[in-house]
Write a protein that binds this DNA or RNA. Structure first.
Lengths: 245, 245
DNA sequence: CCCCGTCCCCAACAATTGTTGGTTGCAGGG
DNA sequence: CCCTGCAACCAACAATTGTTGGGGACGGGG
């Protein structure tokens, strides 16, 4: 019974940290009341700027990235529906990376005042927000393990498993995985786009994934999880992470 | 004048987030009052356990790491003097990685009650603690960029620059860098130990580093920073990160 | 309609990195 | 004293990954 109680992706996401009260849910509905749309490949904020708002993803995919002097790009985080960008951003000031959309997105700006209200006056929500930042950090660690110590094919499979589990935690009926170009995929995995294509076609040949117009689907979760040695515990989702779908 | 006001490494570290009051400093002195020693290569806590205490490093080096089913190890974070392990650890429960010493260490156990007191009753300290967790996350992102998009020699040089800057921020008189074996270095960088040795001797030949009984020193900070394309902004240390030494 | 850009795909070759199997030097234990 | 284990070091070879240069499919704009 991890059935979240409504259609609010933020509520669904935070529900994974523990149950919320009806009053919390009402407050979260207010938070997402006024969304806006953004096209793919637009920046929300760039390296060096001072952040003004916190952003919440309602649909689509957003990423954190850095561009090196030699022009190479590294995508260092993927934000999916229900994810919040930089809760405590006001503390650090100057951004040390950029945030941009990967797909067309529906987003919400959340003001500092709203954040402060949630943190100060809604203890269950505060706890859930902390939980989500800790999970973000755990994901970062797992990506590091992935890049450093897994073969590229396992690494890519592992990424697919992670995104699948994260989407499942928010929307059991989510559509296809990863509407990304192979170059974006490569920038996530730290490999070249040519190699990404090699590895992806390898996974396809093994029938671990299927691809249809640059969308990935996982026909057999159990098998690809085994291949990737995916252990979902770092997502701290409880049983939701383990269930095949 | 980023001269921290005393010999307390925790105070020195937190001072980088902004000035503290004398009362804060007194409180921080109490926190580190009762240290204990630990040998190199001992675990503080292992994957799967439920954490009881928060730990603070007073001297020596501690790391977070994961071990994969195939026996490979990935070191995903380095904790230096003044660093705190898992401030909010109680929220997640079960550890998704292990924490262990790399060198002989002096450490402090901090109880949950102390943490709660610091967070609830000392606003400047609370802000500084949040700052430090955000910096930890920024470091994780930079390591990811490092592994994914820099050549191994630049990557290793970048790590040296980072550790140098972090040690400087806490102790301007710190001794030599990185008392690590080449295998530990390799586990940080995500390369094999043989390759670590190749790369390290390459840096030595370029006279970017000197090594004496497995300790690294940087004879010319400016030059190695240029080589590594090191931009210290992600450490959020203010001018301390930029000064050569 | 064509042109253009983008993306997927592929092959050949170059560069980097991993693996294996050594030698050496050193420190500690018996 | 020798023996042992560990870590640095090295060379040769294997495997992985990057780079370059290209072809083909597709959609949008003129």
């Amino acid at each position: 019974m991890t059935h979240t109680p409504n259609e609010n992706v933020l509520a669904r996401k935070l529900w994974n940290a523990g149950p919320l009260d009806p009053e919390d849910l009402r407050r979260l509905d207010q938070v997402i009341a006024d969304p806006f749309e953004l096209d793919a490949r637009e920046d929300l904020i760039q390296h060096g700027e001072d952040p003004q708002n916190v952003h919440l993803v309602l649909s689509g995919m957003v990423c954190r990235y850095k561009v090196l002097p030699n022009g190479k790009r590294a995508i260092v985080a993927l934000m999916l529906p229900g994810d919040i960008c930089d809760l405590h951003v006001a503390i650090l000031g100057r951004m040390d990376h950029s945030i941009g959309t990967l797909t067309d997105c529906r987003l919400v700006k959340i003001s500092r005042r709203t954040i402060d209200d949630l943190l100060d006056n809604h203890p269950r929500i505060r706890r859930a927000l902390f939980w989500s930042t800790l999970v973000d950090e755990a994901i970062l660690r797992e990506w590091l393990v992935n890049m450093g110590r897994r073969r590229a094919d396992q690494q890519m499979a592992h990424l697919f498993c992670e995104v699948h589990a994260r989407l499942n935690a928010v929307d059991r009926m989510h559509g296809a995985l990863l509407p990304l170009t192979q170059e974006e995929l490569a920038d996530i995995l730290g490999i070249s786009s040519v190699h990404a294509q090699r590895v992806l076609s390898g996974l396809r040949k093994k029938e671990l994934v299927t691809v249809q117009d640059s969308r990935v689907a996982l026909p057999d979760i159990r098998r690809i999880r085994e291949f990737a040695q995916f252990e979902g515990d770092y997502l701290h989702l409880g049983e939701a992470a383990d269930s095949g779908d």
